[in-house]
Simulated assay, not measured.
Amino acid sequence: MRMNTEFERVLKYFDEDGDGKISPCELRNRLGMIGGELLAKDAEKLIEELDSDGDGFLSLEDFVKLMEAAGEDEKLKDLEEAFEMYNDTEMFGFITPKSLQRMLGRLGESKSMEQCTTMIGHFDLNGDGLLCFDEFRFERVLKYFDEDGDGKISPCELRNRLGMIGGELLSKDAEKLIEELDSDGDGFLSLEDFVKLMEAAGEDEKLKDLEEAFEMYNDTEMFGFITPKSLQRMLGRLGESKSMEQCTTMIGHFDLNGDGLLCFDEFRVMMQ
């Protein structure tokens, strides 16, 4: 609830005429006032991509999606910058025991080569003795959840940290989730278990994005399917004019059962 209130306050800043929505012009104007820059065509394109009801404006729901996406991009950028600090200059793209020891020394923390090798070993998923970016990313996220620093996540830690970032999980649900993913039966999530959880969450997010995209192309009269008519309409909104014949042909390429329509499963194949 608090997060939505914060988004509403930001929305009001962009919403110059107070109609509860953001136009391409308002988006450009306000970004310009805070030091950003966006061309008119880019503002229109951005709003077209996020506009869920096709009215040419961003609603609160659309704006929340934009802000959340920007937040994820910022987190990823911060992680990439941190990774570069620990990166090995001779083996670019990896953190080695040597580069880890060097960076920790700069931060005033003296570690032996053996200790650095052990530290990397905790998060070295493929056993090559190095940390790539994905392993580093999972290690940073695990550390956030691992409150007592034992290298594992308990049901209590999972609940606490999810609560701090706006999520909610009952004790019994946290325990059940960990039971399902706990590979060694100790009642905790190890790094390997946690990676599986993160990857599963990523797949769920991709599926959610696909479902939202499918709804944009969905036919209002034949709900649950994309028809040549609905495809033509949506492409028109995106500034791409296609004839009915062209749209029929496009659907035909991915119409697995030959009914002239695209169901969600066929749409998912098309988007892969």
Score class of each variant (00 low, 15 high):
126 N>D: 15
170 L>I: 11
171 S>E: 15
134 D>T: 03
130 L>M: 14
91 M>S: 11
102 R>F: 05
95 I>E: 02
66 L>T: 06
129 G>L: 06
133 F>S: 01
132 C>E: 13
183 S>Y: 07
184 D>G: 08
125 L>A: 09
163 G>V: 11
114 E>C: 02
131 L>G: 02
129 G>I: 06
150 D>F: 03
144 Y>F: 11
100 L>S: 04
67 M>D: 08
168 E>L: 06
113 M>N: 03
92 F>M: 01
80 E>A: 07
174 A>P: 08
84 E>F: 11
126 N>P: 13
83 F>H: 12
96 T>N: 09
72 E>P: 00
70 A>E: 15
135 E>R: 00
145 F>N: 02
91 M>W: 09
107 L>F: 13
189 L>K: 00
160 N>R: 15
69 A>N: 14
89 T>C: 11
95 I>K: 06
176 K>C: 15
122 H>C: 05
118 T>R: 03
192 E>I: 10
187 G>C: 10
184 D>Q: 09
132 C>Y: 08
175 E>Q: 14
93 G>F: 07
157 E>Q: 13
148 D>I: 12
86 Y>G: 01
130 L>R: 14
174 A>F: 09
190 S>H: 05
173 D>M: 12
136 F>S: 00
162 L>R: 06
95 I>F: 07
121 G>T: 00
172 K>H: 15
173 D>E: 15
173 D>H: 14
88 D>H: 03
159 R>M: 14
157 E>P: 04
155 P>A: 10
106 R>N: 13
151 G>L: 05
157 E>S: 08
75 K>F: 10
81 E>T: 14
74 E>L: 11
181 L>Y: 12
154 S>H: 09
139 E>K: 06
92 F>R: 07
98 K>R: 12
133 F>T: 02
130 L>G: 01
69 A>E: 13
132 C>F: 09
66 L>I: 04
184 D>A: 10
187 G>H: 07
146 D>T: 11
165 I>Y: 12
181 L>A: 13
73 D>T: 02
143 K>W: 03
136 F>K: 00
177 L>R: 10
164 M>N: 05
